[in-house]
């Protein structure tokens, strides 16, 4: 396979199509990811080593790079750092790796990766994560008066959430937290990010504040897999809200 060769999206290309670069030294993995993306209608370019990817990044534009962490020449994390240092607008990145320890996840996200997915991965999960990155990094759509996520509808004006048409009353902070999580679906949000967005810069907050609020909105809204959503703690980092519909379909 020639590095950087575009695979023609023969399947159904749509308006949501992205140009995606994939880096992996394992040919089977590279083929699996590429196939998954093409089937979903994206334009995909595969790179077996970091050197060729970097030289391509210097002269081409991508919507997303999917990076393996452990590479023989330059690790995925190092490529993220290279992009941050050498590009005006770094390409959004997703780390796809076998490294599954919490320390690695936190290190990867802290290095600037937009998301972190552990191998092996189900095609649906991979696509959901890619779409989530695209939604928040791609061209912004105007946020309507009410936002709907599955059975949940946010009513920002009334600071209220309705579930299947039934209204659930939240406190101001709870609504703010729920809205932040919904609007950043699939994105790992660090504790400090959530605290700053919802509470502002307040250093005297008890440490359990965030956990207690997460616990309450999960209970009040029923953010459980049965309803198609899962609130996942990212250890030593923060939380991520995940929609499971993609998997179901």
């Amino acid at each position: 396979m020639v590095g950087g060769m575009a695979t023609d999206p023969t399947a159904k290309p749509s308006g949501d199509s992205m140009r995606i670069a994939v880096l992996d030294d394992e040919a089977a993995m590279l083929a699996f990811v590429t196939q998954t993306l093409i089937e979903a209608g994206h334009y995909c370019y595969d790179f077996p080593n970091a050197r060729t990817l970097i030289s391509r990044l210097r002269q081409d534009t991508f919507d997303l790079v999917i990076l393996d962490w452990n590479m023989p020449d330059k690790s995925g994390v190092e490529i993220i750092q290279w992009m941050r240092e050498n590009m005006d607008k770094p390409v959004p990145s997703l780390l796809l790796t076998n490294r599954n320890s919490d320390e690695d996840i936190v290190a990867g996200l802290d290095a600037g990766a937009d998301d972190y997915v552990i191998k092996p991965v189900q095609p649906s999960v991979l696509l959901a994560r890619i779409n989530a990155i695209h939604r928040r990094t791609g061209p912004r759509e105007a946020i309507g008066a009410n936002e709907s996520y599955g059975p949940f509808t946010l009513h920002p004006a009334r600071q209220m959430v309705s579930v299947d048409g039934e209204n659930v009353t939240l406190t101001a902070k709870e609504f703010e937290l729920a809205a932040t999580l919904f609007r950043n679906m699939h994105r790992p949000l660090s504790r400090s990010y959530l605290l700053e967005i919802v509470w502002g810069r307040n250093p005297d907050l008890p440490t359990r504040t965030l956990d207690a609020h997460i616990s309450r909105i999960r209970a009040k809204l029923g953010l459980r897999p049965e309803r198609g959503f899962r609130l996942i703690p990212v250890y030593s980092y923060g939380y991520r809200l995940e929609a499971l519909e993609a998997e179901d379909s």
């Binding site: 394992e26 993995m29 699996f32 452990n70 076998n98 320890s101 191998k119 092996p120 095609p123």
Partner: peptide, 22 residues
């Protein structure tokens, strides 16, 4: 431990990718 974990996982992930691939 990290290396072991990664190196043990990598071939298994590859096997699964192979099976799911084209």
């Amino acid at each position: 431990l990290q290396l072991l974990s990664h190196d043990m996982r990598a071939p298994q992930s590859a096997i699964l990718a192979l099976l799911r691939g084209p």
